[in-house]
Design a protein around this nucleic acid. Structure first.
Length: 574
RNA sequence: CGGGACGUAGCGCAGCUUGGUAGCGCACCUCGCUUGGGACGAGGGGGUCGCAGGUUCAAAUCCUGUCGUCCCGACCA
């Protein structure tokens, strides 16, 4: 490819809306261009990268025994009603009507469609197991798309679905996919961690995410991990053993009583006012889960993990209540208290965290402003039935649930996930096979996703420097750029052209920078775009040598043109 | 959903307070010069100033509405 004809416009400045490095670099280097929020054009360089990632994914999925197909992007409401998700999916599901006024949606994921495909085709136990996948654009109408390709609304995803006779078959396929994923990300030059995760709106029981570990904002997930064993989990799923703390207020409060606690609107205020550790306070938080209030009771030094609470409350959408909603809730239950003094109350759905189990003689809000009860115990709270659930966010330094060593936390970009779905879709959608005894049995399903475009962006997050992108060879848009420093110098030009031709003939993806630009411009662009190798025909040519530069390491050496070509061929084609 | 900010050329921005021929840098075109890390000089093309109303002799500028975009927050009681 001639650089002069390559469709790429590099920018000197970051686009004003880009926050994370992958967004800035991909935009500056001419890989992507925003059409509207969360929706991007994948320009020729980007498309080459995406195709490389796709090819790796395809090869490994095929090798793992999966079969590729392509399902429709537009889907009818009826299918989503069968699974029950039309009602529960929320605003992320982009809904629309066709000309006949029929409800349709853009596919955010394809469990419904694949299940319908399977039930039409997979009738006998003799046909199972099967794993089907596709690579396709998905649309999720994110509340707040950001970080460029990392959280877009329209994005490219590989989604695979497996159909097995039973749980045992699913377990085997799940492991098979985990291995395939590891190979895929390794080949993409990404170091990933497989972590336990909540299974979220997709549903199911067991799930893992593949995280690219990063210490920047681009990592939207917190990952807790143990250095002593292999435990690691997304914060929405992580559990831990707590460090010991004071949980019996016996030495502070010898009897149960109601005390004045004026203006103690925060736990900090309250613990300071009463001169007690916050581990002696049971705090009450009001959440709205699927439009209904839910009280969360948790030891005050700890934080509620919203996904855990949402699951405990059996909902699919959660947010903290506004002060207006709290006021309304107070009024409905005959109380009048402002945040800071909220406590348990009858008749409102309540979830109690495990941390409350051992608490004795503690402090708790009683729904009266400027008052708290001290020396309280759980049975004093008038709760109908007391059950403990883990709804706590793990803190770094808590102890590993497996081996007991302290946990560490880091940020991660989720590039893939695998779920055991079981019969969550096959049952309601009546997707069954006939077994050897002639009985109809629902398939046991799994689903496995990889964000293709997100993987490419994550690779930029993981491989860049202040000059630009440093693509891993396997997914670079081109392998090498050949730079004649001066296009007017016939010796340089003919040398560059010869090298370029030899590389192309050997099967290397090469670009020749034939632009009539100064060397500095060509070098800056080469670094920004991120060609893994650069061969420069310039001043060293007087000694019969060209410069060979490795983008990843910055290593530079002068070689004969023949050796430079060999070096690239060796690195690229093995 | 709440708050804030911003919409002026492909990109990044100034101009608006105090109304009077629409500017700068990058990019683009031409010529010259230059050629190993985003040179320089001269010339040039490109914008109904988001949109719609209003005020005015006159609106990018003032007023109203509207659409869009970005950021922050969404209460740990």
């Amino acid at each position: 490819m001639k650089m002069s004809k390559l469709f790429v416009q590099t920018l000197r400045e970051d686009p004003s809306d880009a926050e994370v490095v992958s967004h800035k670099l991909l935009a500056r280097a001419g890989y992507i261009r925003k059409l509207t929020p969360g929706i991007y054009n994948f320009l020729p360089l980007m498309w080459r990268v995406l195709k490389k990632v796709e090819t790796i994914v395809r090869e490994e999925m095929d090798r793992a025994g999966a079969q590729e197909l392509l399902m429709p992007f537009v889907q009818p409401k009826e299918l989503w009603e069968e699974s029950g998700r039309w009602e529960v999916y929320g605003k992320e599901l982009m809904r629309m009507k066709d000309r006949h006024d029929r409800d349709m949606c853009l596919g955010p994921t394809h469990e419904e469609v694949i299940t319908s495909v399977a039930r039409d085709g997979l009738k006998s136990y003799k046909q199972l197991p099967v794993n089907l996948y596709q690579i396709q654009s998905k649309f999720r109408d994110e509340v707040r798309p950001r970080y460029g390709l990392l959280r877009g609304r329209e994005f490219i995803m590989k989604d695979a679905y497996s159909f097995d006779l039973d749980e045992k078959g699913l377990d085997k396929e799940y492991e098979n996919m985990a291995q395939a994923y590891k190979r895929i990300f390794d080949r993409c030059g990404l170091d990933t961690k497989m972590v336990q995760s909540d299974s979220g709106a997709i549903g199911g029981s067991v799930s893992h995410e593949f995280m690219v570990i990063t210490d920047t904002d681009a990592g939207e997930n917190d990952v807790f991990y143990c250095n002593s064993c292999d435990y690691s989990a997304n914060s929405n799923h992580a559990i831990s053993k707590l460090p010991t703390a004071v949980v019996d207020g016996g030495e502070y409060f010898t009897q149960k009583e109601i005390v004045d606690t004026p203006n103690t609107h925060s736990i900090e205020d309250l613990s300071e006012f009463l001169k007690i550790p916050s581990t002696l306070i049971l705090k009450t938080l009001v959440y709205i889960v699927d439009k209904s209030p839910v009280l969360a009771l948790i030891r005050a030094d700890k934080t509620v993990e919203e996904t855990k609470l949402m699951n405990a409350a059996g909902g699919i959408e959660i947010r903290i209540a506004t002060s207006a909603e709290i006021a309304e809730l107070m009024e409905q239950n005959g109380f009048c208290a402002v945040p800071g003094f909220i406590g348990p109350m009858k008749g409102v759905k309540t979830v109690i965290d495990e941390t409350a189990r051992d608490m004795k003689n503690f402090v708790v809000g009683i729904n009266q402003t400027d008052k708290h009860m001290v020396g309280a115990n759980l049975e004093d709270l008038g709760l109908e039935d007391i059950k403990f659930t883990d709804i706590r966010l793990v803190d770094a330094g808590d102890f590993c649930p497996v081996c007991g060593k302290p946990l560490f936390v880091t940020k991660g970009i989720e590039v893939g996930n695998i779920f055991k779905l079981g019969t969550k879709y096959s049952k309601p959608m009546n997707a069954v096979y006939t077994d050897a005894d002639g009985k109809n049995v629902p398939y046991v399903m799994g689903c496995y996703g990889i964000g293709i475009s997100r993987t490419a962006a994550a690779a930029v997050e993981a491989h860049h420097d202040e000059h630009g992108i440093k693509w891993p060879i396997s997914i670079a848009p081109y392998h090498v750029v050949v730079v004649p420093v001066s296009t007017n110098d016939e010796t340089q030009m003919s040398c560059a052209e010869k090298i370029y031709k030899e590389l192309i003939e050997a099967g290397v993806e090469a670009v020749i920078d034939d632009r009539d630009e100064r060397a500095g411009v060509k070098f800056k662009d080469a670094d920004l775009i991120g060609f893994p190798f650069r061969i420069t025909a310039g001043k060293t040519l007087s000694e019969g040598l060209v410069e060979f530069k490795v983008r990843e390491t910055g290593e530079v050496k002068n070689l004969t043109p023949e050796d430079a070509v060999k070096e690239v061929i060796q690195a690229v084609l093995g």
